Computed example of a mutant assay.
Amino acid sequence: MLVCPAISLSTEIVFIYQRCRLCYNSFGCGSGGYICIHEKCFYILHSHCATKKELWDGRDLEGEPEETSNSEDVKSLKEVDDGKTFHHFSHQHDLTRLCVNGEEEEGDERVCQACILPLDSDSFLGCKECDVELHDTCANLPRKLEHTFHRHPLTLEVDMTNIKEGFFSCSKCERESCGFMYRCCQEECDFKMDAKCASLANPVYNKAHQHPLTLFDNGARCLECPSGGVHPLFYLHSKTATLPMLVKNKYDTHPLTLCIRKSDIEFPSSLLRCEICEIRINTYYPDFQNLYGCFDCNTIVHVECAIGKYPYLKPGHTIKLNGFEIEIASNSLSRPVCHACHSTCQDKLVFKDKSSAISFCSINCITSSKKTLMQSYGV
């Protein structure tokens, strides 16, 4: 699947001053490639870029009718009662518009059911009968999706009980999630994508850059900035492009702003330390990328320290690894010691074996401790 789903081979590209929308290299005079079939669209690709296996499944669609779908069939959210209430296909109750009150204690934040990130905007859609709540953007994610990040159509799945492990790893950003998941429609394809990556759509507007960005197979790129020299092409990997621009933190009264590059830091960089883990931040690449900072208080925080190593996993959710049930919990002030690596669990989340008092600081530590878990079950 490409940004333009309908492209055709041309033996001669007439837009010789245009660049390939995938690799951004120019076309040689008289060289061929693929162009969009729509007259007003100037989307063009090199032949070798268009036929990459990550983007093209090998099917020649020439002569085949374009696939059509009823827009009502792909809508996840429908208005009820003249827009006063809403119905989402994932939930049996109607949803209403609610407001964030900002009084939640740490570890008890209200989170979106789809992306698992905090409900920190002014309003959201929520159920008054249970704890199901959704960001507006997440609630409107379609049930069927064609996305730049994958060559096949995707289907939205909202029930993690259908997944043996109770969570999945996004094929694009590689983060673990127990929220909504897009799965490839092709049985032989194991592609999965979380709600945040799926919400990226052209054009991408990110406050980290002054120009709108264009999605490519692994992230978003600026096509307006000059490339090379002292002005490199601006690019965001999908893992960075989906990070929240503002986060709240108990160490600062102000929201912390995402800093993509060293130039985003507006205060002296010497002897900077993360306010949470207290580790010194190296002023050289790559430490100075992807940090959260407050320019009023000179506060700087690592991304993982601000949002956690597993921002898309929900406290209270149960996962299964190696056949054993593990409960995800908010990390308390007691900071338990990990049974695998024997270090103090510092992250926002801690993983607890339901049959014992054993705690783990990461999924990697759980999977490396199969023998210990089997002994705790008497296996």
Rank of each mutant, 00 (worst) to 15 (best):
V3T: 08
I7K: 03
L9M: 12
Y17D: 15
R19A: 05
G28V: 02
H38Q: 13
H46F: 03
H48G: 01
H48T: 08
G58Y: 10
L61D: 12
G63N: 02
T68D: 06
E72T: 10
E72H: 06
H87Q: 01
H88C: 03
Q92Y: 01
L95A: 04
E104V: 00
E104T: 02
D108H: 06
Q113T: 12
I116C: 05
S121H: 04
L125H: 03
C127N: 02
E129A: 13
C138E: 05
K144W: 02
F149M: 03
L154G: 03
L156G: 00
D159Q: 08
N162T: 09
K164I: 00
K164M: 08
F167V: 03
S171H: 10
K172D: 08
F180A: 04
R183Q: 09
C184Y: 08
D190E: 15
F191H: 11
A195L: 05
C197R: 00
N206V: 05
P226D: 05
N249T: 11
I265S: 05
Y284Q: 13
P286S: 08
L291T: 13
F295H: 15
N298E: 15
E304G: 00
K309S: 11
K314C: 10
I328C: 02
N331C: 13
S332P: 00
K352C: 15
S355H: 13
F360W: 08
I363L: 15
C365M: 07
I366C: 12
S368E: 14
S376C: 12
